[in-house]
Each structure stands twice: as C-alpha cells, then as structure tokens.
C-alpha cells in the first residue's frame, strides 16, 4: 500500500532521512519510534507531501506521491493526518471542523457531511460536543475530534504524528483507545509515538529510527524482548523508568 524506496531528505546540509526503505501493507499498523530528532515525524510528513524529498520514491497504491504532476490535494484528501498539536480550527465548531473539507472539496453535500461527521463524533464519544468550540474541549477531546475530522473523507490510510505527546497524562488513554479501535477495524496506520504500551499491544510492526535512518524493524514482541541493534537496546533501556528494577 505504501512503499518507501531509498527515501532521502536534506535540510540544507543536514541529512534528515537516510535511505529509508519500508513497505506498509494494507491494514497494517506500524509504530515508528526513536529519539527526538531521529526523523520520525519528517518521515511520515513526506508520505502526504507536507515535506518534499530529494531522493528516492514514495508510492501510495502504486502512485508516485512526489510526482510534480500528481494532484497533491486529491492525494492528501485520501490520507488522514493527525497532528501533535491537534490543530483544530478555533473559529469553527467541532462539527464544522469535521465537515469543512468534505463540503469545500464538494465530496459530500452539507447534509451528508453532517451525517457522516456526527457518526464519527459518535464513534470517538463526542457527539454531544458537536456544537462546541474547540476551546471548550479538553486536550484529549480535541485530539479525538481531530481524529474524527481526519476520517471524514474515509481515507484508507491515517498517519499519526505524536498524537499524545501534547496531552496531559490523564488524557492519553482516551486517545489511544480510539486509535486501537481504528486499528481493530482494519485501518492502515502509521503512528509516530512514544507510547510503548500502544506499540506492544496494537502495532503489527515497530520501526526504530535514529539519525534519519531505520535501524531496526520487528514485530513488537521481538522488538521489546530481543532488540538487535545496540542503539535500540540503549533506547529501550533509557526510556524505562529509572525507578523500575531492571529486567535484565
């Protein structure tokens, strides 16, 4: 479904992505983790072309995402994207946030869009907040609305860029549960996250990145119990709470 082939990206002299090769199958849930600055976010932002690449190819269902002739807006309408900072539009109600793109792009009539958005808000447990403004919601609620919004155009793929990193700890759970339900329904998902519990429980595969390169990919069980690369071992040791007794 998504194929990254020798993807390279530079910011000036800085080599942000180094020969990334990855294939993500339909229905697969991939968690991308790694230290900050490792290129995780940059990587998923290249998939819907929020970032350009300087080398290699990214194919989505066989179409070259970075082909200059490709209709980038049509491409993006087919890929859900959830941001760390939610980015709800503060001047629109929750419902309007969800229907904006569908109506503006004339994919749906206003009433169809409203119906679909209400169904999605129901699913994330926020139908009763449809007429509220984003500022009246908690962070967790805002992120759940952002997920509903990303689903309004029924994208086959959804990308998460650290969806719980800006949340208070007590709100992380509600967002992760919504994400888990999506995964259960067979959604193709690529999640950049530091939630190792989520990776363990929900992911089909964990990809570890450092300094722009993918160092290791494995099923969660393998990844957490038998990390191969020394950098991965160090990372997993470092993120463990210093107050827990070492398992090793």
């Amino acid at each position: 479904m998504i194929e990254l082939q020798n993807v390279n990206k530079w910011y000036g002299d800085y080599h942000a992505l180094v020969d990334v090769n990855e294939t993500i199958a339909s229905g697969e849930v991939v968690v991308v983790c790694g230290p900050s600055g490792s290129g995780k976010s940059t990587l998923i932002r290249t998939i819907n072309r929020l970032e350009e690449i300087q080398g290699g190819q990214i194919l989505l269902d066989g179409r070259d995402v970075h082909d200059p002739r490709l209709d980038v807006n049509a491409l993006r309408a087919g890929i859900g994207f959830v941001f760390q900072q939610f980015n709800l539009f503060p001047h629109l109600t929750v419902l309007e946030n969800c229907t904006l793109a569908a109506v503006q792009l004339r994919k749906l009539t206003a009433s169809e869009a409203r119906e679909r958005a209400m169904a999605l808000l129901e699913r994330v447990g926020l139908a009763h907040k449809a007429q509220a403004l984003p500022s009246q919601l908690s962070g967790g609620q805002q992120q759940r609305v952002a997920i509903a919004r990303a689903l309004t155009l029924k994208p086959p793929v959804i990308l998460f860029d650290e969806p719980t990193s800006a949340l208070d700890p007590e709100m992380v759970g509600e967002v992760l549960l919504v994400m888990r339900d999506l995964a259960k329904d067979g959604m193709t998902m690529v999640c950049v996250t530091h939630e190792m519990g989520f990776a363990r429980e929900v992911a089909d595969r964990v990809v570890f990145m450092d300094q722009g390169a993918v160092l290791e990919r494995a099923a969660p069980h393998e990844f957490f119990n038998h990390p191969q690369h020394p950098r991965t071992q160090k990372f997993l040791a470092d993120i463990r709470s210093p107050f827990e007794k070492s398992a090793a």
Partner: peptide
C-alpha cells in the same frame, strides 16, 4: 500557528481555499 495552514492543506484543501476558510477568518479577527 503554522499548523493551521498545514492542517488545512493536509485535509486536501487547495492553498487559496485554506487561506480563505481557515487562515483569513482568524488572521483578520
């Protein structure tokens, strides 16, 4: 915040439409 334009574009809105329905209403206010 830069995320407003970015997010509108990520939903598939073309630049000018994102400007008109997301950025300008907030910016002018």
């Amino acid at each position: 915040p830069r995320g407003q334009m970015e997010c509108a574009r990520s939903l598939g809105l073309p630049y000018l439409r994102a400007m008109r329905s997301v950025v300008l209403p907030q910016a002018l206010r």
